[in-house]
Write a protein that binds this DNA or RNA. Structure first.
Lengths: 341, 341
DNA sequence: AGGAGACCCGCAATCGATTGCACTGTTACC
DNA sequence: GGTAACAGTGCAATCGATTGCGGGTCTCCT
């Protein structure tokens, strides 16, 4: 492995001091140098295929041009587009991203945060925060952090999320228009902002419409998984409250709910309507076609990256504490009018 | 942002020299120190919440404990499990991964390779190589590289792939057993090893069975996309060669083929059987259930990481040039007996 | 008692880039 | 003509951790 060329090499080749080379090669540093020298050095650097050593420069300046990206689990379909959105903004701006999976494990999150700090990341984008995440709050005190998709409740950490409230409200109204009055809700985990916010939105929307929203119509999942979706839907149906529609806090829960209906021999949307949230990739291909709230997955990632860069490069400027991106309803086959008994 | 504690801080606190602290804190370095000093230093480090600065240590030792992971596109369902497998091995071993998306763009690949080098990665796992990738070959001369899922043909770069030949052969046999003799093949891109290898395997298997495999039964896709799958399947059907089954080089092509059939009003498997390759997540939920070759997605990632670590830490030891992981057939609804005219 | 090791630990150079300060030569101005 | 201002470069310290080398102390043996 031949060692790569350094400033010193270029200095030797061009007969100037390394500091001069350094200045010639930084965009604005060449200001105090003669055009001729800058030109000569740039040419030599090009010829010698010079690549700056980011470690060295990072050590000196304590800016590594690296950001940490924390994800619960990259194999969860929701996150790749977000990650892609993040990279889509960071990479062209010279940042590299270190990707880590937390598995929603608090100890693991702690450990990975240390890993990122050791590596001197300039900032962190966290798609894995819990709603009540004290350690992330502390962490954010020493390093720019932006949360994406989720947020820490009552926190100053900037977040980029989707319009959870609006999405749920629109969906409830859509179901109501189809005649549904007894709508069940499979809520997301209580320790995730999406879980609590969507649940609150559900209850508000139901009350606003003058419909019942007793606690018995809501079942809270422990995780955003198909298995939990099935379990919760089952529970809801067991309670036998005459539910005609189930609004799930996300698509995976909804897929589980569909499975539960199938297991009971119930048809969707014939017997019961089901809706999801996120519109994850491939959802459109799965029968009966889940009606869901479409979020701008790529854009929330990209926006989070933009905000993080602002935080990192212009700490004095203020950034919005919460950025909410719009959502829309995609209607597919999983909802229909209330079954007439 | 308060600066973190350094070796110097600990040295000052414990009254020893920084070099002593350094030795006390490296696992085997403490060998030449007294137990008492080591203990005292370790305790102080713990108390002061010391985190080594990886930049500094990387600069000094030129080992950054970082690896680059190149993926064509993380939003492609195939790759997240592979990435997860990679991380599953690297992270517990102290490595962090920088993830980059190449979009199968050669110029972009080149640029990202430079990015990784600047950051001093100890090695690279590449899931995005083209079959004839000269620049990656050169790159691998100066830095440990392992390719995963794909490989560079006729190269010395170690690769971890699935049993493409076996998978295709088994699938052809399976179709043959159902009576299919005129089997079409939607081949993968000619510049990817999976494309050429599976195509070759298809032709070999067909010949072995004594079936026809004229060039007209094979259409080569330009990309692994649903759109290309549909286009190629259409082309195949237009040729009107009496094809009764279409073996696709991967699942996305197969999904496209299904779409093409649907557009023509043909049923699957009633009129035509279709098969895929990879068994990507969610495939099981999409009707009619694609029969496909299941690969060990997580394991090829993990194995690639294991091999890379060997390469990085024990350059003298030899590693297998190609590691082939087994595959199996998952049979779902998309294949059936030949339609009797 | 003197010498040989063994054992512990400090010294200082080093990795590569950055940057405040100092220094030299030139220009301009009175 | 002398000096002040300035442009253009070099010098050297610095970021934090690592490591070869050397020096001091203690033990043990002859």
């Amino acid at each position: 492995m031949k060692k790569s060329t350094t400033l010193k090499d270029i200095a030797r080749a061009t007969g100037v001091h390394v500091s001069t080379v350094s200045r010639a090669l930084t965009p604005n540093g060449g200001a105090s140098l003669s055009q001729e020298v800058v030109e000569r050095i740039r040419k030599a650097a090009e010829a010698m295929d010079y690549r700056p050593n980011r470690l060295a420069s990072g050590l000196r300046t304590s800016r590594t041009m690296t950001v940490g990206v924390m994800i619960p689990d990259i194999t969860n379909n929701l996150f790749p587009p977000i990650v892609r959105g993040i990279e889509g903004f960071l990479e062209p701006n010279g940042y590299a991203s270190i990707l880590v999976n937390t598995d929603n494990d608090i100890a693991r999150e702690q450990r990975l945060m240390d890993v990122l700090r050791e590596r001197g990341v300039d900032g962190v984008i966290n798609a894995a925060v819990r709603a009540d995440d004290g350690q992330m709050e502390r962490f954010a005190a020493g390093l720019p952090v932006v949360t994406v998709n989720r947020k820490v409740e009552n926190s100053t950490i900037p977040s980029v999320i989707s319009d959870d409230v609006g999405g749920v409200r629109m969906m409830v109204h859509r179901l109501a228009k189809l005649g549904h009055r007894r709508i069940g809700h499979v809520a997301g985990p209580a320790d995730l902002s999406t879980g609590v916010d969507r649940r609150a939105a559900f209850e508000t929307a139901m009350r606003t419409l003058g419909h019942d929203a007793p606690a018995r119509l809501v079942v809270t999942a422990s995780y955003y998984t198909e298995a939990e979706g099935a379990r919760c839907a089952d529970l809801l149906l067991d309670r036998d409250e005459g539910v005609t529609a189930i609004l799930c806090a996300n698509d995976r829960l909804a897929l589980g709910a569909l499975e539960a209906l199938r297991a009971r021999g119930l048809s969707c949307p014939g017997d019961i309507s089901v809706t999801g949230f996120n519109d994850i990739p491939f959802l459109d291909l799965i029968p009966p076609g889940l009606t869901t709230v479409q979020i701008l997955q790529y854009d929330i990632g990209r926006t989070a990256a933009e905000i993080l860069v602002k935080l990192m490069t212009m700490p004095e400027r203020r950034v919005p504490s919460t950025t909410i991106l719009p959502v829309s309803i995609v209607e597919r086959g999983s909802i229909g009018p209330v079954k007439q008994p």
